[in-house]
């Protein structure tokens, strides 16, 4: 994958997505004593997905703090601590459980600066393991990017590579406002080059992962990898696909997407959240409202999650979210004017 933010002067090595996030948290804990981690079983257990790992051994239980099973209270404590000088990184065990903490995230953290006329700052980071594909069924597999993206005051990012997982987390920490990070569970073990040391990946910038002439695919998280795989197959058939990794749902990188659609004249949005009222609707509307609309050679297509909870049965589970062949089929139909 051709990552756009290469830092040639910096050493980089292979790390997994989970290791990259852990490295970012370790750097932050070492550099700034105001940084604390909070969450359920992030200490000796190492986190439900082993992301915090050994950090409790390095920084102790006061800075890597296990909470009781109290999402609303725990998230709220993180908000209060952020408001008064700490830099908490709060881990939800699954993004699904953030529904128990919506009050503190949506009513409090997101609006505090605004409601107080700019006089307060809530620099809190919420980490959310997200997405389907693990057989954990309806209450452990959801994709809530669009929910949180709908709330002014929040920033919402979705790293798709180890490099960005680290860079976006450090950017979130440096941000004076609340940031929600959706980490895709199926990516935790994925390896990739990760620069050493402190660097940030800018929030609000998409990344062009593959350039192409015939069609733009805007995808996020695991869907970036499915789109890239589809692009390979399609290239062999003479369809040249540009793949944009959205990276940030709020704010959305208008420039990059609009420029790409102007060039290719075709757009497919691929995302795991439920298709209706999702991220793809926003991107489609953005194109419809821009001058890129004049360049369209075909209707815009959205591939998103089924209008259903995520089922347990593995075949149903796969059928509930876009897969690589679905992307290929959609691209062929679009380019061959079958829609």
């Amino acid at each position: 994958m051709n990552a756009p933010t290469r830092h040639p002067e910096v050493q980089s090595r292979e790390l997994s997505y989970a290791e990259a996030i852990r490295e970012a948290m370790g750097l932050a804990l070492a550099r700034d004593e105001r940084v604390i981690l909070m969450g359920e079983d992030i200490g000796v257990y190492g986190g439900a997905f082993q992301v915090t790992g050994d950090l409790v051994e390095r920084f102790g239980p006061d800075r890597v703090r296990d909470t009781p099973i109290s999402e609303l209270g725990g998230a709220g404590v993180a908000v209060g601590a952020a408001l008064t000088g700490l830099r908490p990184i709060f881990e939800f065990q699954f993004s699904d459980f953030a529904t128990l903490a919506m009050e503190q995230i949506v009513n409090q953290a997101a609006k505090m600066r605004y409601m107080l006329g700019g006089e307060a700052s809530v620099p809190v980071v919420f980490r959310m393991p997200s997405g389907s594909g693990t057989g954990a069924a309806a209450q452990h597999s959801q994709s809530f990017e669009a929910w949180f993206g709908h709330v002014p005051g929040l920033k919402v990012v979705q790293p798709s590579t180890p490099e960005d997982a680290k860079g976006l987390l450090l950017a979130a920490l440096e941000d004076p406002d609340p940031v929600v990070i959706f980490e895709h569970k199926l990516l935790y073990k994925m390896k990739g080059h990760v620069p050493e040391g402190w660097y940030t990946t800018p929030i609000g910038k998409a990344a062009v992962r593959r350039t192409g002439r015939d069609l733009t695919i805007v995808a996020s998280a695991i869907m970036v990898h499915r789109a890239l795989a589809a692009a390979e197959t399609l290239a062999a058939e003479g369809i040249d696909v540009e793949v944009i990794d959205l990276r940030s749902v709020r704010p959305i990188d208008r420039e990059t997407i609009i420029a790409s659609v102007r060039k290719t004249g075709r757009l497919i949005c691929v995302y795991e959240g439920v298709r209706t009222l999702g991220v793809g609707a926003e991107i489609s509307a953005m194109i419809a409202e821009s001058d890129a609309f004049d360049y369209l050679d075909a209707p815009i297509l959205r591939l998103g999650g089924a209008e259903a909870p995520i089922p347990y049965n593995p075949d149903l589970e796969k059928a509930a979210v876009p897969q690589t062949p679905d992307i290929e089929t959609a691209a062929r139909r679009l380019v061959r004017k079958e829609v």
Partner: peptide, 25 residues
Amino acid sequence: CHGRGGSMHIADVTKGNLGANGIVG
């Protein structure tokens, strides 16, 4: 649950079992 629920959602409403739950509490 006709294969939709799995271990964490087994229920048998006819016998008064309103279901396991994936959400603590």
